[in-house]
Amino acid sequence: MTAPTVVAVARQRHHGKDVGFHLVMSVVTLLWVTPLVFVAAVALRSFDDISFNGLGSLPHSFTFEAFGTAWSQGSIAGALGNSIVVTHATVVSVLFGGALAAFALSRYPIPYGRVILLVMLAGNLLPPQILLIPVSQICELLGIYDTLFALVVVQVGFGLGFFTFVLYGFMRSLPVEMFEAAKIDGAGDLRIYATIVLPLCRPALAALAALESTWVFNDLLWALTVLRTDTKFPITAALLNLQGGYTSQWNVVAAGALIAAIPTTIVFFAFQKHFVSGLLVGVSK
C-alpha cells in the first residue's frame, strides 16, 4: 500500500466511525427531547382536538388558547411575578451576605475560621425536612407566615453556607498584593471590600447568580412550607394548583408547565458556561 492510500483508508475508517457516533447520539438526543416535543404539541392543541383524538394522537389543531387560559385564568401570570420577585431578592441577598462572610473569613485571622466555614457549609447540606416544621412555626411567631418575605428569608438562610464556602475559595485565590497596596494607600476594610474584592469576584458572582436563580425559581418545598394563600404562590406551587383545577384539560397544564420552564431555560442558554462552572464547584480538584 502506498502512503496516500493508507491515509485515505484511515480517513475513510475515521469517517465511518463518525457516522456511527452521530447515528447513535442523534437517536439518544432525540429520545431526550421527545418529552419536550410531545408536551409542546399537547400545549398547542385545542381541548376539543384532545378529547376527540386522544392525548397521544398527532395534532389536528394549532392554537395558543391553552397558554392564554393558563396565563390569565390559571393565575400563572401572577405566580410568575411572585417567582421573579422572590428569585431576585433571594439571589441578591444570598450573594451579598455570602460575599461578606467570605471576605471576613478569607482575609482576616478569624479564630476558628475554618471551622466556622465548614459549619456554614454543613448547614446547607442538611436535608430540608429537618427544618420544615420549626421554620413554619418561627414564621408564624414572627408574623411573617404566608408572605413572600418569609420565603426569601428562609431561602437566604438555607443558601448562605454554600455561597460563603464557594466565594471563600475564590477570594483566597485573589493576589494579596492588591489588598496590601490598597491598605498602604489608606483604604479601610469596607472600602477594600467594595472597591476591590467585589469587582474582582464578578465572574464568580455571575456563575453563582445563574445557579442560585434557577434553584430558587425551581423551589417547591419551601413555598409549600411558608405560604398558604394561592395568590402568593410562586410558579411551581401554582402549577400544582393548576393541575388540580384543570384536571382533564391537559393542554392547559402542559402550557403552564412550559411557561414555567421558559425563564430557567433562558438563564441556562444565556449563561451556559457560567452555569456549568457553577455546577462543578467542589468537584474538580
Binding site: L36, L240, F275
Partner: peptide, 11 residues
Amino acid sequence: VFSLAVTGLFW
C-alpha cells in the same frame, strides 16, 4: 434546568 415540579407535570 426545569424544576422538578415542571418535570413531574411533563411526565
